[in-house]
Amino acid sequence: MFVDYLRTILSSVYNVDGVIEPTMSFEELELDSLSLAELGAQLEDDLGVTVDEENLTAATTVAEIAELLEAQGAVVPA
Rank of each mutant, 00 (worst) to 15 (best):
55 N>T: 04
52 D>P: 06
45 D>M: 10
1 M>K: 08
58 A>M: 01
63 A>T: 10
47 L>F: 04
26 F>A: 04
12 S>E: 13
46 D>I: 00
23 T>P: 09
17 D>S: 13
18 G>I: 07
17 D>I: 09
52 D>K: 03
19 V>P: 01
46 D>L: 00
30 E>H: 13
66 A>W: 07
67 E>M: 15
64 E>M: 15
36 L>Y: 02
16 V>W: 02
57 T>V: 12
67 E>C: 15
44 E>C: 01
44 E>Q: 05
7 R>W: 11
59 A>V: 09
48 G>A: 03
14 Y>S: 05
52 D>L: 07
61 T>Y: 04
15 N>M: 11
28 E>M: 13
59 A>F: 06
39 L>N: 01
37 A>L: 15
19 V>T: 11
10 L>C: 08
54 E>Q: 13
22 P>I: 08
50 T>Q: 05
66 A>N: 06
52 D>T: 11
4 D>P: 03
28 E>L: 13
28 E>T: 15
15 N>R: 15
51 V>A: 02
15 N>K: 15
15 N>W: 11
48 G>F: 01
31 L>R: 01
62 V>G: 01
21 E>Q: 12
42 Q>F: 00
11 S>M: 12
52 D>I: 02
12 S>K: 15
22 P>H: 05
15 N>L: 15
29 L>A: 04
9 I>G: 05
30 E>R: 13
64 E>S: 15
21 E>V: 11
27 E>P: 03
65 I>L: 14
41 A>T: 12
12 S>I: 13
61 T>M: 04
62 V>T: 05
48 G>S: 01
41 A>S: 14
29 L>F: 07
46 D>P: 00
60 T>Q: 00
61 T>A: 08
4 D>A: 10
31 L>V: 14
38 E>I: 10
31 L>E: 06
37 A>T: 15
36 L>N: 11
7 R>N: 14
58 A>R: 00
66 A>G: 09
42 Q>S: 05
46 D>H: 00
47 L>G: 01
69 L>M: 09
40 G>N: 12
42 Q>C: 00
40 G>F: 07
37 A>H: 12
56 L>Q: 11
45 D>Q: 12
33 S>Y: 06
53 E>F: 11
11 S>H: 10
57 T>L: 05
49 V>T: 06
15 N>Q: 15
45 D>E: 12
44 E>I: 00
11 S>L: 11
1 M>F: 04
40 G>V: 11
59 A>D: 08
29 L>C: 05
29 L>M: 07
31 L>I: 14
42 Q>M: 06
67 E>I: 14
24 M>C: 06
7 R>G: 10
13 V>M: 09
60 T>I: 02
6 L>Q: 07
11 S>W: 01
23 T>D: 13
23 T>R: 10
65 I>N: 04
49 V>M: 00
6 L>S: 03
52 D>V: 03
46 D>N: 05
18 G>R: 06
19 V>N: 06
3 V>T: 13
39 L>E: 04
44 E>R: 02
13 V>I: 10
13 V>Q: 13
62 V>P: 00
17 D>K: 14
